[in-house]
């Protein structure tokens, strides 16, 4: 079966969304992971729990609250309108914001594990070799945590590709704007076009398998940031 132009549009949109989200997640997630890995603050537990919340929360719950927050009555919605950005729900930007929150733990945890596994010693050594904390972070901590970053990027990307509930709540089903692959599959099934649904679903299945295969090749048994 051939993929229709609508299907291709959904694929393109999904890849675009996942790429943007992954890049932003690495930028946002790294300082959070660094802080969680090294702080002795009492807030560590609370912040860690908040970041991990999306792992256990049903995506629809998360999506619902984001919808409320970003809506015209919500705090974030009023803020974005005041900034002149307009409202986020049912836009690509809204999807990006929601996806970042939804996939955050999948990026933060592998990086955090890598920072923790590295221990204090390389950082102390760098300090005795006159490297400032900032230089130490970029020339020692980041390179040593590379496997964690690769795992984080792959997981963040794959998790964004596969999301459905959050998109449904926050993005709706607008062609070329928010209609991603998982929505398109849902549309096909609703319309009883099982063949078309099959094509896209098989693509996602193959994609997921290849991602996991790659992950295990890169990181061995600790690839998914599991307990050491």
């Amino acid at each position: 079966m051939e993929l229709t132009p609508e299907d291709w549009s959904a694929v393109r949109l999904t890849l675009e969304l996942s790429t943007v989200v992954t890049v932003l997640l690495l930028i946002i997630g790294t300082p959070i992971a660094w802080w969680l890995a090294r702080t002795r603050s009492r807030l560590r537990g609370v912040i860690g729990a908040v970041v991990s919340l999306p792992i256990v929360l049903p995506p629809t719950v998360l999506g619902f609250y984001l919808l409320v927050l970003m809506g015209p009555q919500g705090a974030v919605g009023r803020f974005t309108e005041a900034l002149g950005i307009g409202r986020l729900p049912f836009t690509f930007t809204g999807l990006v914001v929601a996806s970042i929150i939804y996939s955050l733990p999948f990026v933060v945890q592998p990086i955090q594990n890598a920072f923790m596994a590295m221990g204090e010693r390389p950082l102390e050594v760098a300090a005795t070799l006159r490297a400032s904390p900032l230089a130490t972070f970029f020339t020692v901590a980041l390179p040593l945590a590379r496997p964690g970053f690769i795992t984080a990027a792959i997981l963040g990307f794959a998790h964004t590709v596969g999301e459905f509930g959050v998109v449904l709540m926050i993005g709706g089903n607008i062609p070329d704007k928010t209609r991603v692959i998982s929505m398109q599959i849902y549309n096909h099934v609703e319309a009883m076009e099982y063949g078309q649904a099959h094509g896209l679903a098989a693509c996602l299945l193959a994609f997921s398998f290849i991602v996991l295969l790659g992950l295990y090749a890169v990181g061995g048994r600790n690839a998914l940031g599991g307990s050491r």
């Binding site: 010693r121 390389p122 102390e124 050594v125 760098a126 300090a127 005795t128 070799l129 006159r130 490297a131 400032s132 904390p133 130490t136 020692v140 390179p143 040593l144 590379r146």
Partner: peptide, 19 residues
């Protein structure tokens, strides 16, 4: 702070940068 002290430090186990 350590990085502003003109010292050399040799740790018990050689802590060379693996990367």
């Amino acid at each position: 702070p350590t990085h502003l002290r003109p010292l050399g430090y040799v740790f018990q186990e050689a802590s060379l940068f693996a990367h």
